[in-house]
């Protein structure tokens, strides 16, 4: 499977994606927030710097909001990483969330993690699991993560092969299980080890995620019983109606009903806790965004300086967060963020 970008699909263009949402003529997200009696979403002090190390990935998942894949070559340079480190040295930001693509495929990944570790930052890596088995050079990743006390967050959309493979590609489930067992062997997800292994559940279709705790209990039961796998917490994340998931919604005739579900499930409580309030997302080229989704829609932060090399924490604190109709994805039901439910 090729990325939208490589297959020259018009939906690879952010404006085409936003047009597809706007054509549905739903209440614009900003108006929905106002009609709920809420003020404009305002930033809190930045506590998380989410750094997208590139769009290169060994997988081509059907729901990927990054449109990542083996055919994507955009990756963060060492120079941009140095700029990130420089910002972090002079900032109170405590958490650095590394994402991609497969962030481990960036040739400077290990160096960057080592530097972050020296700065005593809490490091999260969004590891797709199969990368650990993809090549001999990645086999020691669990040990590397352990040395630097990296929190591992990994997607596993279901505890069955059928549903996982439908979303993430043929054979991904069995490789993910093997990778999880290797992480467990290194101590990840094991009580008392202090090594966090959290899983991410994304629905494998045009449905919303259910109660996070209920799903977590089922995942824990099934993964332990069938594969002797332990993990810490399950993050239940709503699929965003952008990029490849948007394409799936359109192709399957589900876009309108899915957006209706998101709009109907709008939860004002979730608005208070959306991740764009305390996170800044850095693109592979150093550009700054309110979140990873805005990054993929090329909606940069509403400040004069929009790149990590000109990072101005104070100005970012006064910025107006950019919202559009895809934001309904973060405020439906119990809400959704890179850390799961928010309400």
């Amino acid at each position: 499977m090729k990325s939208l970008f490589a297959s020259h699909n018009p939906l690879s263009a952010p404006d085409v994606q936003l047009d597809a949402l706007h054509k549905l003529e739903m209440t614009p997200f900003s108006e929905r927030v106002k009609s709920a009696g809420l003020e404009e979403i305002k930033p809190l002090p930045i506590s998380i710097l989410q750094v997208n190390l590139g769009k290169m990935c060994n997988q081509t998942c059907k729901h990927c909001h990054v449109d990542a894949g083996p055919d994507r070559k955009e990756i963060m340079s060492r120079e941009t990483m140095e700029q990130c480190l420089s910002v972090l040295r002079n900032s109170t930001i405590q958490t650095v969330d590394l994402t991609g693509g497969a962030p481990e495929m960036n040739p400077h990944f290990r160096w960057f993690v080592e530097e972050l570790s020296t700065l005593k930052k809490h490091i999260i890596v969004r590891c797709n699991l199969t990368i650990i088995l993809a090549n001999k050079k990645y086999h020691d990743l669990p040990e590397f993560f352990k040395v630097h006390q990296v929190e591992v967050v990994s997607s596993l959309p279901h505890f069955t092969a059928l549903r996982t493979d439908r979303q993430r590609g043929e054979g991904v489930f069995s490789k993910s299980i093997e990778a999880l067992q290797k992480l467990n062997q290194a101590g990840y997800g094991i009580d008392g080890s202090g090594l966090l292994l959290n899983l991410v559940y994304n629905p494998t279709g045009a449905i919303l995620p259910s109660d996070q705790k209920g799903l977590e209990a089922e995942f824990k039961h099934r993964l332990k019983q069938e594969f002797n796998i332990d993990f810490n917490v399950l993050f239940s994340i709503t699929n965003m109606p952008i990029s490849r998931y948007l394409e799936y919604l359109i192709e399957s005739g589900n876009l309108e009903s899915y957006m209706e579900k998101l709009v109907d499930a709008f939860n004002p409580m979730a608005v208070q806790n959306v991740m764009c309030r305390n996170t800044i997302s850095v693109g592979w080229d150093g550009n700054l965004y309110d979140c990873d989704f805005n990054q993929m829609l090329e909606l940069p932060v509403n400040t004069e300086k929009r790149n990590i090399r000109d990072f101005d924490e104070r100005a970012l604190g006064f910025r107006s967060i950019r919202v559009d109709d895809h934001c309904y994805g973060c405020t439906a039901g119990a809400g959704s963020s890179c850390g799961g439910e928010i309400a």
């Binding site: 279901h158 069955t160 919303l208 259910s210």
Partner: peptide, 9 residues
């Protein structure tokens, strides 16, 4: 929808 959302296959 509800059963699928709750993780049933």
């Amino acid at each position: 929808s509800d059963t699928l959302e709750k993780g049933y296959t």
